[in-house]
Amino acid sequence: MASGTTTAGGAPLRQDAAGERRWRARRHRWDVRWSPYAYIAPFFVFFAAFGLVPLLYTAWASLHRVELTAPADMEWVGLRNFSRLVADEFFWNALKNTVTIGLLSTVPQLLIALGVAHLLHGRLRGSMFFRVVALTPYATSVAAATLVFVLLFGRDYGMVNWALGLAGIGPVNWQNGAWASQFAVSTIVIWRWTGYNALIYLAAMQSIPDELYESAALDGASRWRQFVHVTVPSLRPTILFTIVVSTIGATQLFGEPLLFNGSAGATGGSDHQFQTLGLYLYEQGWVNLHLGRASAIAWAMFLILVLLGTAAGLINAYRRRTG
């Protein structure tokens, strides 16, 4: 707080009072000029420390051979860390897994969220209770949720296989089956994020004017037709937003597959069948200790996101021009 303080001392002399006024005026000018910077500084300081510096360091490290055992020893290798990714079967496998797990988790998640939001939006006894319930999984830590899901999806003593067994379906190896494991990991993501997206949809739904529904009802539209022709079109910007956010989240998927693998950590299953890009990055950097290679993967992920964003933007612009 730069202003509002008083000078110390006893009875001031007259010339001092004039000086005091000038001093105050100057301080006021400084205050007006610099305080705003001080107010926004925390964000930028934190962004610089936790966003910009790591970003730049990662870019620099990705051009070097550098090991976690001695991060200060850097050997220039140019773009080799990137060029080798092209021939790296594990990188492509991780990219493929990231896409399939991303689709397996994002699509059902948003569809279910839309449905849940629609239910919560309707007249419902104790709607506040259900809203809180919907958000509870989001408030659960990844680690806690995943550890519970590991038990549920256990091959020998898991509840899921027990229920399937009642239906006469043989035990599924959720950990080491190819599709089974991806499905299991996606389930954790869906469980955690559906409620969150549902609340976002719900907020958007509540801003849709009731008149639209009333006139639709007068025209004889069923609730389902109201949903398809009134709710969904009105939600389009919100749906786009959740798709973007979920896609970013899916690209960075890490905690769930890491913990789902129990003791084996970053391998993502015996055949790397659920090793995502984030997990492969972690394995290269903190298991194999190759920081340079890990940095290259991080930047490749970043570039993929930029590419996706640009493509989405172009499609949008094209549609706006033609439509």
């Binding site: 550890l147 590991v150 038990l151 256990g154 091959r155 020998d156 003593y157 950990q175 129990g262 003791s263 084996a264």
Partner: peptide, 8 residues
């Protein structure tokens, strides 16, 4: 057919 040091 277990993996050591897992819940299973």
């Amino acid at each position: 057919r277990l993996q050591q040091f897992t819940p299973a």
